[in-house]
Design a binder for these strands. Structure first.
Length: 424
RNA sequence: GGAGAGGUGGCCGAGCGGUCGAAGGCGCACGCUUGGAAAGCGUGUGUGCGUCUAGCGCGUACCGAGGGUUCGAAUCCCUCCCUCUCCGCCA
């Protein structure tokens, strides 16, 4: 959610941003400004009446104290009418505020000036490439190898739960654990504080990071207890400091957290969902930063570089895309996607998405910091994966695949795996 | 899950229908005092929203959350949430 004051003062800029992001109704900007004006003038009127009513109530109290019941009664008759008027205005106020909120929620975040303007993924910019994508065709896709070697059991997963909930068996279960440990250790060594978080969240938290309203369909629900299963650790981690004021000397705050993630992924199909490409439950190590607004873009770059360094350490070829305005999402001001090369599929797979949300999330959850002069200000949030597990596993199974079906273990994982090679 | 107690400012803790945004204490900040420090003394110290003459201004809202009673609610009533104690259950 953008700041109304900002919208009021930058109406044209916001409209342009909406157009660049492919939002079709920039007239919402004018509407929001109108509703906001109505709301503000009504606030003033209401506050004046309240002020009068408070005065009168005090007078009544004083008169009652002196036993002057008749005089008090006169004022009471008057304030009863006042009261009705106030209640009327309060009702109107509530509906105006809700209307303003509804409109505000339809206005996307404003992209940074360094973001390429574009409509679809075609317009994303290749920001960086690392390593050589392997074009050899003999490598099996990870699902074929995984099933052959009985390392990944999709069928039993489907039996026990449903499609998209695989079992990982033996050495591949261990490989995931190795990756998780490696990612968490590395993040901790790089200044991120590890957090173990609740896997279920309440509605307020879902609202805070923007899953609600609009994207609740992505989440699994536990209706009886009014919880949602987390679609990413971003939700509990960012909400950790919801409704708090953080001392500026404590910024930036950096957290890392490993969690399973649950996503309904309604509407996905075809090659997108083959094997480990897209699951309903997957593991991820998430990175979240809460930063001073002036540092946000530097912090985004360093987050991106950090995520890239993980892939380099694993020696997995990748490319970094700078997402264009049309493909970057509603809440972000700038976003990079990291994609690894899958030689078994001859395609790129996204393993990390690093985004700056500006004050968009923080405003919704009243997440502020205290400035030098004592004022409070909304801080900025940044997050990214470091990294999402299944596609990294897929890449390792394909890139490190030998002709006999065994898998060489990347150097950095060997201490965690206790072996240099995975055989069936 | 059953029975009871309770949720007030950064913290502790009073208030239990009117003058309460809220006593008192602690903490913190600044000043005085001191050779320096402690003690002592003085002043200040919540958040959101609106507003302007933008001031250590004015108004308003907020004492777990939401609703209600009343001219007036931190105080009374209802619903919910959370915490603590005992019992039950249990990784």
């Amino acid at each position: 959610m953008l700041d109304v004051t900002y919208i009021r003062e930058n109406a044209e800029k916001v409209k342009q941003a909406m157009q660049n992001k492919g939002e079709s109704n920039p007239e919402i900007v004018d509407k929001v400004i109108t509703v906001d004006e109505q709301w503000r003038s009504l606030v003033q009127e209401t506050d004046e009446l309240r002020s009068e009513s408070n005065d009168k109530a005090k007078k009544i109290g004083a008169l009652m104290g002196q036993g002057k019941k008749d005089e008090a009664q006169e004022i009471i008759d008057y304030t009863s009418k006042l009261k009705e008027e106030i209640q009327e205005k309060e009702t109107k106020l509530r509906s105006l505020k809700n209307h303003r909120e509804d409109l505000l929620l339809q206005i996307p975040n404003v992209p940074h000036k360094s973001v390429p303007v574009g409509k679809t993924e075609e317009d994303n910019e290749v920001f960086k490439s690392w390593g050589e994508p392997n074009k050899e065709e003999w490598r099996k896709p990870h699902w074929e190898l995984g099933e052959e070697q009985e390392w990944i059991d999709f069928e039993r997963g489907a039996k026990v739960t449903g499609a998209g909930f695989p079992f990982y068996v033996g050495p591949i279960a261990r490989l995931q654990r190795a990756l998780i440990n490696y990612f968490l250790n590395t993040a901790t060594e790089n200044g991120f504080t590890e957090l173990q978080v609740p896997y279920f969240i309440n509605e307020d938290s879902a609202r805070g990071t923007g899953q609600i309203p609009d994207k609740e369909d992505m989440m699994y629900e536990i209706p009886r207890d009014e919880f949602f299963a987390i679609p990413t650790a971003e939700v509990p981690v960012t909400n950790f400091h919801r409704d708090e004021i953080i001392d500026k000397d404590d910024l930036p705050i950096r957290y890392t957290s490993y969690t399973p993630c649950w996503r309904r992924e309604a509407g996905s199909y075809g090659k997108d969902v083959r094997g480990l490409n897209r699951l309903h439950q997957f593991d991820k190590v998430e990175l979240v930063k809460m930063v001073h607004p002036d540092d946000a873009y530097d912090e985004l770059e360093s987050l991106r570089e950090y995520a890239e360094s993980l892939l380099e350490a694993l020696e997995i070829p990748y490319r970094t895309l700078l997402m264009c305005t049309g493909d970057m999402g509603f809440t972000q001001t700038k976003k990079y996607d990291l994609e690894v090369w899958s030689p078994g599929q001859q395609r790129w797979l996204e393993v990390s998405s690093c985004s700056n949300f500006g004050s968009f999330q923080a405003r919704r959850m009243m997440l502020r910091y205290r400035k030098e002069n004592g004022d409070t200000e909304t801080l900025h949030t940044i997050n990214g994966s470091g990294l999402a597990l299944p596609r990294v596993v897929a890449a390792i199974l394909e890139i490190y695949q030998q002709e006999d079906g065994s898998i060489l273990v990347p150097d950095v994982l060997q201490p965690f795996m206790g072996t240099e090679i995975i055989t069936s």
